[in-house]
Amino acid sequence: MVELTIYGIVLGSIISLGSIGLTLVYGIIRFANFSHGDFLTAGAYVALFLVTGIMAWIGIPDTNFGSLSFGWRMVIAFPISMAVVAGVAILLDQILYRRLRAKKSGAVILAMSSLGAAFIIRMIILILWGADSLFYKPGLMRPAIELPLGAKIRPDQILILCVVLFLVAALHIFLKSTKMGKAMRATADNKELALVTGIDTERIIIWTWGIGGALAAAAGILYGIDVQLHPYMGWNFLIPLFAATILGSIGNMYGALIGGLIIGVAQQVSTAFLMPTYKLPVAFIIMILILFIRPQGIFGKE
């Protein structure tokens, strides 16, 4: 049980990272981005391409750091992949959502077009890499560290938690202390007033997509390191992501963080009682329950 909780926190931290991006996009651009899960997948596969493709070709050594399952290649690939997916998210906005916004399309139209974008991203990945599960490093031994109470944790998982913590802290500082971060919060609070104040809200939207895409890519890679890569990995994350976002009140970054951890732990702990295939329905049921009991989420106002 302790071990499942620990694994839940690791999974939850990955969900948090994804749902923070989702909630930021919702708060500022005001629609449910169904392609957010596929940003995770895209991030994971871009990193795969860099690690096993380009960097193998260049000849960057692939020795692991101590007992971690990756080395310098991943360290280099991680930020590049975040930047690439940020670019993809911004590009999608410029060629798709911006035009729809200009035509004053409703949230449903935008959400449906994001669903289309999700299919496009996923199919491109399927065409390029096929439908099999892949690993950054196949055939890897995964030694674990013994913890008290008989629990085990892998060094990779400790690192995942550290990376998530670092990214969340960085985002927190950005939103609280920088001019652009504050303007993002202001736009989420009251877009019309932000415009009246002279804030260029289109520029804020670009920043929002960039940050959302980058965090999604990070989440995808971390999941790839922890488990495996699959073209549907991000799509399967979509329900946990939305559950976490709604649980933590839509638009609330800190809510998404907490929501993600709750969903992750609930999903993992449920495997003690249910078959692991029920992990997704567990997230779905939590989402339905919140919508019934407290649709505004934990941190929402009445």
């Binding site: 504050k182 919060r185 202001a186 989420a188 609070d189 009251n190 019309e192 007033l193 932000a194 009246v196």
Partner: peptide, 10 residues
């Protein structure tokens, strides 16, 4: 503006 003229969460 007449209404919604502040950023409430700030």
């Amino acid at each position: 503006p007449q209404v919604d003229n502040v950023f409430p969460s700030m």
